[in-house]
Amino acid sequence: MSPLPATIPAIVRTRLRAAVRRPVRRTAGPGAYEEAEARTLLLRLCSLLLQYPDSELSSARPELEAGVAALPASPAAAHLTAVTTWMAGQEPDGLERHYVEMFDLRRRSSLYLTYYLHGDTRRRGMALLALNQRYRAMGWDINGGELPDHLPVVLEFAALAGPRGGEAPLRQHRRGLELIHRALTDADSPYRHVLAALLTLLPPPTEADRAAVAQLVAEGPPDEEVGLDPYGAYGDGEFAPPGAFVPPAPAPPTRVPPAPTSHLEGPR
């Protein structure tokens, strides 16, 4: 596997265009359109659709729409069709504002997966290191671009490395993905369709998964080192994104003592 360049979007878009140009035969029997190929294309589309919608991504909209159209009919394909249809009707500025609001200003829909499992603790740093080592073992080097737990990066790794080792980080962070999906659904964001499509690739959640997500919603991520406030403490059901400035609690009101009576004051 060749190393990744400094900009992850460039290689993702190049690989997507190559995948779309590959002829897709739908009428030659069950083996004509390989399940693995469809899965890879779906992962790459999810990776692209969850990246910041800059001008480069906007210019790749025809490839995105062609990629979605190349997917076999499935609930996941229907979800991605809903997203690309919505994007096509948005002004660039509005799409960028919506992305920032959903993924940069809301911690429960942040795209940095290790945060949900480890919070801002030393364990998160260890998890990031382990993930980066996994990439390098497969020939990847993200060259100081995005953090290795950024969901679009994790998705492209899954597409390139295959369902076993490549999708292991997605399975490991399934509960975080569930929380992101729930947060986007609560916000009525069309980006919820991308998470819904992705979740169709993972095993169904267990009762333990559901309980853990409920606890994450109620309490937030682990906080033994930085003391994050519980989930929802920053207004509108949000906790601030990793590294964001969090204003301190307001100081108690100052009590001004009454002025003493002057000895020069005359009789009343």
Rank of each mutant, 00 (worst) to 15 (best):
P230L: 12
L170Y: 06
Y231G: 11
V83A: 09
D93Y: 14
A38D: 12
G232K: 09
E178C: 10
M87H: 01
P190L: 06
N143F: 00
P72S: 08
L42V: 08
A18I: 01
P204W: 04
D188C: 09
H193R: 03
Y116H: 05
E219A: 15
R175Y: 02
L202Y: 05
P152I: 05
L198M: 06
G89T: 14
L4G: 00
R268W: 11
R44S: 06
I8N: 04
D186I: 00
A211K: 14
D54T: 09
H118M: 02
A168E: 15
N143D: 08
V12R: 04
D223G: 15
G237N: 08
R192C: 04
N132M: 12
A197G: 04
L64N: 05
V256H: 14
L184R: 06
P5F: 03
T84G: 04
R22I: 00
V246I: 14
N143W: 01
L48H: 02
L50E: 04
P221L: 05
P241E: 09
L4R: 13
L177K: 08
W86N: 05
E65F: 00
G232C: 10
D186W: 00
G67M: 10
A36G: 15
A212L: 01
R182Q: 14
L48K: 00
R107N: 11
E101W: 07
S55F: 00
I8W: 12
L71G: 07
P92S: 10
A208T: 14
L202N: 07
G29A: 07
G243K: 11
P203L: 05
L128F: 09
A196G: 14
